[in-house]
Simulated scan of single mutants.
Amino acid sequence: MQIKDSTDKLIGRPAQFALFDMDGLLLDTEIIYTQVTQSIVGRFGKTFDWSIKGNMIGLPAMVAANYLVGALQLPISAEIYLAERDQLLRAKFPSCKAMPGAENLIRNLDSHNIPIAVATSSSRELFQSKTSNHQDWFKLFNIVVTGDDAEVKQGKPAPDIFNVAAKRLDANPRNTLVFEDAPSGLAAGIAAGMRVIVVPDPNMDKSRYRRAERILNSLEEFNPAEFGLLSS
């Protein structure tokens, strides 16, 4: 069976599985990353704005850190930046809030027995910190794959993390939807042969998401039935 959207445009095969990025998509952690990073780079008279952050979002920690140090010409190494950053982040992450529509969507998919997974570039340690006050709905995910998983050889935009999550869900990529907020995550999902729904930060240039199946303002706008995830 094939599904059509409201404009009668063919949107492909019905989805049976869903993979979710976490930062900026399920949890509002990006504001914390911004605050912490600015507190570090500000000591050197630098500004961490979206001209920099927009090229870092969704990337593995070390890749993003190397970019930051180079772009802002910081007089510290990427390793030193990450060590200080992560120490500050651990204290702040438990206070992060759910993004609009995230919890309701996850509970809805779970109630209909749709296999779902988290596929995040975060380390397992930081994942646990971020989700510590959201365990009641994060426990509904069948699988969680973090960026430091032994099977994830390359981070986004490589498809590894989505391939690993799909394998563990026993999911066919052609029947899998990826939910992302970052251009690197969009590229990773497409490279994995999956359809990608994006919910970009309002500060991001939407032209960077041209290859997405759909661009949404929030997860509240997503209609699972339209993609075959639910019958109605």
Score class of each variant (00 low, 15 high):
residue 1 M to A: 14
residue 6 S to P: 15
residue 7 T to G: 10
residue 10 L to Y: 10
residue 10 L to G: 02
residue 13 R to V: 12
residue 13 R to L: 15
residue 14 P to N: 01
residue 17 F to H: 09
residue 19 L to I: 03
residue 24 G to M: 11
residue 27 L to H: 09
residue 28 D to Q: 08
residue 28 D to L: 11
residue 28 D to C: 05
residue 30 E to L: 07
residue 32 I to E: 00
residue 33 Y to N: 08
residue 34 T to G: 04
residue 37 T to H: 05
residue 37 T to D: 02
residue 41 V to M: 06
residue 41 V to Y: 00
residue 44 F to S: 03
residue 46 K to I: 07
residue 48 F to A: 00
residue 48 F to D: 00
residue 52 I to W: 00
residue 52 I to R: 02
residue 52 I to M: 04
residue 53 K to I: 01
residue 54 G to K: 12
residue 56 M to P: 09
residue 60 P to G: 08
residue 62 M to K: 09
residue 65 A to I: 04
residue 66 N to K: 11
residue 68 L to D: 02
residue 69 V to A: 07
residue 71 A to Y: 00
residue 74 L to H: 08
residue 75 P to D: 07
residue 75 P to L: 06
residue 79 E to S: 12
residue 80 I to F: 10
residue 80 I to C: 10
residue 82 L to Q: 04
residue 86 D to N: 13
residue 86 D to F: 09
residue 87 Q to E: 15
residue 88 L to T: 01
residue 89 L to V: 12
residue 89 L to C: 10
residue 90 R to D: 03
residue 92 K to A: 15
residue 92 K to Y: 11
residue 92 K to F: 10
residue 92 K to E: 14
residue 94 P to D: 00
residue 97 K to R: 06
residue 98 A to R: 04
residue 103 E to A: 14
residue 104 N to I: 15
residue 106 I to G: 02
residue 107 R to Q: 15
residue 108 N to S: 15
residue 109 L to C: 04
residue 109 L to T: 04
residue 113 N to W: 06
residue 114 I to W: 09
residue 119 A to K: 00
residue 124 R to C: 12
residue 126 L to H: 09
residue 127 F to I: 12
residue 127 F to H: 03
residue 130 K to I: 01
residue 131 T to A: 15
residue 134 H to M: 11
residue 137 W to G: 12
residue 138 F to N: 05
residue 138 F to H: 03
residue 140 L to K: 09
residue 142 N to M: 14
residue 143 I to L: 03
residue 143 I to M: 05
residue 146 T to E: 09
residue 147 G to L: 13
residue 150 A to E: 07
residue 150 A to S: 12
residue 152 V to Q: 09
residue 154 Q to L: 10
residue 157 P to C: 06
residue 157 P to I: 05
residue 159 P to T: 00
residue 159 P to Y: 02
residue 160 D to V: 06
residue 161 I to K: 01
residue 164 V to D: 04
residue 165 A to R: 02
residue 168 R to M: 00
residue 171 A to V: 02
residue 171 A to L: 02
residue 172 N to E: 14
residue 176 T to A: 11
residue 177 L to W: 00
residue 179 F to E: 06
residue 181 D to P: 10
residue 182 A to G: 09
residue 184 S to E: 12
residue 184 S to W: 08
residue 190 I to N: 13
residue 190 I to R: 04
residue 193 G to S: 07
residue 195 R to S: 10
residue 196 V to H: 01
residue 197 I to G: 01
residue 197 I to W: 04
residue 198 V to S: 03
residue 203 N to F: 12
residue 205 D to T: 01
residue 206 K to M: 02
residue 209 Y to Q: 14
residue 214 R to P: 03
residue 216 L to V: 13
residue 218 S to K: 04
residue 220 E to Q: 14
residue 222 F to T: 05
residue 222 F to L: 06
residue 227 F to S: 00
residue 228 G to R: 00
residue 232 S to P: 04
